[in-house]
Amino acid sequence: MSDYCGGCRYDPRKRLGDKACPFTAGYWAFLSTNRPRIPANARMARTMKQMERLNDLDAVVDQEKRRGSDPP
């Protein structure tokens, strides 16, 4: 693993807020939005269980929708 995030202004441990990493939050928002299209298989089972335990998932999805619609 490398440290691509070393100089980044975002925090990869945060899903919400101004410092929330767009890759981390975007990952969970993508999975949540596309949940019906993701097949049940062993490779995704653990990830989907983790997503079910996120208590801020709705807020993350809303944030990423806003982030995607914000002008550059």
Rank of each mutant, 00 (worst) to 15 (best):
R15V: 02
R13A: 14
M1K: 04
M48P: 09
Y4W: 10
N34F: 12
E64R: 09
Y4E: 07
R37Y: 13
C5H: 05
T47P: 01
K19G: 00
T47S: 08
G68N: 09
S2G: 11
C8I: 11
D58H: 01
A20F: 04
F23P: 01
R43G: 06
G6F: 01
G17W: 01
P22I: 14
W28S: 06
K14F: 03
S2H: 01
M44G: 01
Y4F: 11
R53S: 13
A59R: 10
L16D: 02
R67M: 13
A59L: 08
P39E: 13
M51C: 05
D3P: 01
R46V: 07
C5I: 00
D56A: 01
P72V: 14
S32P: 05
D11K: 03
N55K: 15
K65M: 12
M51I: 15
S32H: 06
S69M: 15
E64M: 14
D3H: 05
N41I: 00
Q50S: 12
Y10W: 14
G6Y: 06
C21I: 03
G26S: 06
T24P: 01
T47H: 07
A42N: 09
T24M: 11
D58W: 00
D62S: 13
R37P: 00
D56T: 03
A29E: 07
R9L: 10
C5S: 05
K14E: 09
A59Y: 01
V61N: 08
P39F: 03
Y10L: 00
G7S: 11
E64G: 08
R53L: 13
C21K: 03
D62V: 07
G7N: 14
L57P: 13
R53A: 12
G6L: 14
R53I: 02
T24F: 03
P72T: 10
G68P: 02
G7T: 13
G7E: 12
N34T: 14
M44D: 05
R66H: 07
R9N: 09
G7Q: 07
D62F: 00
C8F: 05
R13H: 13
M44E: 09
L31P: 02
F23K: 13
N34S: 10
T47I: 15
